[in-house]
């Protein structure tokens, strides 16, 4: 069955849909967690520490967090590899372009591929910046995420990278969520409007929720 799924364009789209929804679910939780930064250093840092102790005593310290990380890495890799292979195939299937060009598909639809590349690069930067601290601008201290976040968004490039990536994320979700529903066979004539609205609301809420943090730092609400 795995072979059938992976070898088929429809199957690979299913892989993309499922991995995309896993990442989307994570992003909702991540965005809600981020908003704790508006309630002060202590609450935010406490929340970050709690993430490492989730499931205790059943789970050891950081086990749950690592489990989530593994699932996310699998989802990102599966999503990206499928997208790459499908895109290669799509480009081969339409080698010569029309002389008379027309643009019809929406901006979100047309930017799925490049938006995805931007998001992939952003994830690398984001992890190196705020998880490992490798490319962090200030003095990175693990266990003090509040200060680390403020440091990142005190640099112009930190803000630019983040804002661009979050706009790309919103557009990606706008087309991606609705598409995933179609790929999984969940769409229908009667449900179409509800699915499109849900996709738009999700895209808007996530973008606003994430962008609120750098805006908070820039305006001095978070410092």
């Amino acid at each position: 069955m795995a072979r059938t799924v992976w070898d088929s364009t429809v199957g690979k789209k299913t892989v993309m849909a499922v991995s995309g929804l896993v990442m989307l679910l994570y992003l909702v939780a991540h965005m809600i967690g981020n908003l704790k930064i508006f309630f002060g250093t202590e609450e935010f840092n406490h929340y970050a520490h709690w993430l490492r102790t989730v499931g205790e005593p059943f789970m050891h310290y950081e086990w749950t967090l690592w489990l989530i990380r593994v699932v996310l890495v699998v989802a990102v890799v599966a999503h990206a590899v499928s997208a790459y292979q499908l895109s290669r195939r799509d480009i081969r299937a339409r080698p010569s372009k029309y002389v008379h060009k027309k643009r019809r598909a929406s901006y979100a639809t047309r930017t799925m591929r490049w938006g995805g590349v931007i998001l992939g690069l952003f994830i690398v930067w984001h992890v190196l910046d705020l998880t490992t601290g490798t490319v962090h601008s200030g003095g990175f201290e693990s266990g003090k995420p509040y200060q680390n976040v403020v440091d990142t968004f005190s640099t112009w490039y930190g803000n630019v990278i983040y804002l661009v990536a979050m706009l790309a994320l919103g557009l990606h979700i706008r087309h991606g969520f609705w598409s995933a529903a179609q790929t999984l066979g969940a769409g229908s004539r009667t449900r179409d409007r509800a699915l499109k609205t849900t996709a738009n609301i999700l895209a808007l809420l996530l973008t606003i929720g994430f962008v609120a943090v750098p805006v908070g730092v820039m305006t001095g609400v978070v410092s």
Binding site: T9, G11, R89, D90, T109, H175, S179, L184, S188, R189
Partner: peptide, 29 residues
């Protein structure tokens, strides 16, 4: 190629086959 649900097929179809037809096939598959 594969489907990216751009929807141009259903717009071009002279017989008005709807885009949701693809969703139906995905479900069957």
């Amino acid at each position: 190629g594969g489907c990216t649900l751009a929807g141009e097929c259903a717009t071009a179809c002279p017989k008005g086959i709807p885009l949701v037809s693809i969703t139906g096939m995905n479900k069957e598959w």
